[in-house]
Simulated assay, not measured.
Amino acid sequence: MYAVFKRELFSLLNSLMAYITIGVFLLALGLLLWFFPDTSILDYGYAELTGFFSLAPFLFMFLIPAITMRSFAEERREGTYILLATRPLTDWQIILAKYLACLVLVLFSLIPTLIYYYSISELGLPKGNIDTGAVIGSYIGLLLLGSAFTAVGVFASSVTKNQVIAFAISVFICFIVYTGFDAMSQIFALQYLESLLIGLSVNEHYQSISRGVLDTRDLVYFISFVALFLGLTRFVIGGRKW
């Protein structure tokens, strides 16, 4: 499994697409947080990163599918997955190796954003006037959100050989699970299901963790979400293998 993980990670790191995608993500985030007046931290007037943690999930909807779209789709298109499947590895080991490699790259994309925390801490009056606990909780929530979106992206890549189609499917599913359930709970005909739909929303659990409180219900939700989509990936891959 480690050999597949290492191969997949170096394959991603050697891909120009990964650097372009992360670069666009960081550029868009920087422009939104520091230059555009409607979302600028400087115009907000408070030493906090609420704007960053509100905008990052929507950028994740495009960043993560762009990273994961090649994980299975490219292998199947080029025919190299057959060679991988014949090795003494289980389907779960292959799936987890690819999933963890993509997740590590998502983590790499978040590391440069720590400069935002340092900048706000230095700009605050007095210096260091920032709720560090809330920031740590929000980063944990963002990492859990990234793990959920990565599982969706790996599943979408296993469904098709076309990377563009895998990207589109992944973006659509991420958008639905993040905002769709909240929107459906506001529909008049579905208001009696409001609590259930909100409970299924990724956004609800992400916002709960972002408040700085780690609730076991939120952790169980994200673990179950990841397990569900990785299980669906196993079902798709196992069915084709059979």
Rank of each mutant, 00 (worst) to 15 (best):
F235E: 11
A73F: 01
L29H: 10
F108K: 08
G199Y: 06
S54L: 13
R76E: 11
G146W: 07
R76M: 14
V177F: 07
L100R: 04
K98D: 03
D131C: 06
Y178E: 04
G231W: 00
D38K: 15
D182P: 11
A28H: 03
V4R: 04
G124R: 10
L16S: 10
I64M: 01
F225E: 11
Y206H: 10
L143N: 14
F10W: 15
S11Y: 12
I22E: 04
L33I: 10
W34I: 07
V213M: 11
G146I: 09
L110W: 02
A18M: 12
Q191N: 14
S158Q: 08
I136C: 00
G238I: 15
S15N: 14
F35V: 14
S121H: 05
M184V: 14
G238N: 09
L214P: 00
S54K: 14
F225H: 06
F155W: 14
L200D: 01
S224D: 06
G212D: 07
A156L: 13
I67F: 00
Q207G: 15
W92D: 07
A189E: 07
T90P: 13
F58P: 13
T233N: 02
L31T: 14
L143R: 10
L143E: 05
Y116K: 08
S170W: 02
P65K: 04
N162P: 05
V4F: 06
V226W: 01
Y192I: 15
S71T: 15
G146A: 12
T80C: 07
A73H: 05
I169R: 03
L214C: 01
T179A: 06
E194Q: 08
G137H: 07
L125R: 12
P37V: 13
T233I: 04
I20E: 00
V202I: 15
G51A: 01
I136A: 00
L230R: 02
V226P: 03
S158G: 14
I41H: 01
Y99M: 06
Y118C: 03
L219S: 05
W92A: 06
Y118V: 15
V154N: 03
L89E: 08
L145F: 02
L84C: 07
A151I: 07
F181P: 05
S208K: 06
S119R: 08
A166T: 13
F60H: 01
P88H: 09
F53G: 11
Y99S: 03
T113V: 03
I140W: 13
D131H: 11
G133M: 08
V104I: 09
I169L: 08
C174K: 09
P112R: 10
T233F: 02
L29S: 09
L49H: 10
Y44T: 05
L13G: 07
S147N: 12
F172S: 14
Y116D: 06
L83V: 14
L96I: 14
G141S: 13
I41S: 01
G124Q: 03
G146P: 12
F167K: 08
L125T: 15
T90D: 04
